[in-house]
């Protein structure tokens, strides 16, 4: 099919709109000049500066730990929730269950953050690393469930039936057939939870306490003061690592689609 000129213009404009701003940030992270609009030659000094910036490195470390812990937790609970929803068509409170699972997907972050903070205050828990981790688990669980649920929905039930027909007990059929087949989706969900956690500013701001500052919180504080090459460099590192994760996710989900 040949594309009309209008379609090509739309495509080019749309893609440029999406990518140019990010590309500019990435390019200017190699700018030797401190001024945003002046190109002072190529330099990697801001990247070296990042490593020396202790508060930033500390925040990165906190963010990574939070993201890792919350992604693992969210993956376990989210997978269970998707299985509960797909496999059990009838149980008491199924409607409520589905509601509680999928509403967080559309809830503004500011509401999720506020309500979770109030929970931690009511429970009188000290705020810090663990409250951020739990809060991130709470909102990323729904995303994991969404991805695993979608995979379960288009998983042909005849695979598990074939296993049962060949003598596998329900548990054995799940472990030997269903689980290996949905594993890519679970891994994709886990990585999504990881990137969402790494990216979150609002919920972390509500639920963090003294001594637990995440990378987005630290960056946000600096961004409010203006554009600096150092933030450009930090952003570039983040963009590149997230893009790599996305490629892995795409690869994981592509593989199961071919199956």
């Amino acid at each position: 099919m040949r594309m009309s000129r209008f379609n090509i213009v739309s495509l080019v404009f749309g893609i440029a709109f999406l990518y140019l701003p990010i590309l500019i940030v990435m390019i200017y992270s190699f700018n030797a000049s401190k001024l945003v609009t002046v190109w002072g030659g190529f330099s990697t000094q801001w990247y070296r500066g990042l490593l020396a910036n202790k508060p930033l490195m500390d925040a990165t470390f906190v963010s990574l730990r939070v993201a890792l812990a919350s992604a693992l937790g969210a993956t376990i609970i989210g997978t269970m929730a998707a299985l509960a929803l797909r496999r059990h068509r009838r149980f008491v409170g199924r409607g409520l269950f589905a509601f509680m699972l999928f509403v967080p997907l559309v809830l503004p972050e500011i509401m999720t953050g506020l309500s979770l903070l109030l929970l931690f205050v009511a429970l009188d828990w000290d705020r810090g690393f663990w409250t951020i981790t739990l809060a991130h688990m709470a909102f990323t669980t729904s995303f994991v469930a969404l991805i695993v649920d979608a995979r379960l929905a288009d998983l042909d039930p005849s695979y598990e039936e074939a296993a049962r027909d060949l003598g596998a007990s329900p548990l054995s059929a799940f472990m030997r057939v269903t689980l290996p087949m949905i594993l890519p989706a679970i891994a994709a969900g886990c990585l999504l939870a990881f990137t969402l956690s790494l990216d979150d500013l609002v919920i972390a701001s509500f639920t963090s306490g003294p001594g637990a500052t995440t990378l987005p919180m630290r960056l946000y504080g600096q961004m409010r003061l203006g554009v600096t090459p150092e933030i450009n460099a930090a952003s570039t590192v983040l963009i590149v690592s997230v893009t790599l994760i996305v490629i892995v996710i795409a690869w994981l989900t592509r593989r199961h689609r071919q199956a």
Binding site: D156, S158, Y159, E161, A162, R164, D165, L166, A168, A259
Partner: peptide, 20 residues
Amino acid sequence: VPPHKRPVNMMFQNYALFPH
């Protein structure tokens, strides 16, 4: 009797060969 305990086997319409 559940399917895994029956001395009967089935060839599925879409074959249901385990892709993994």
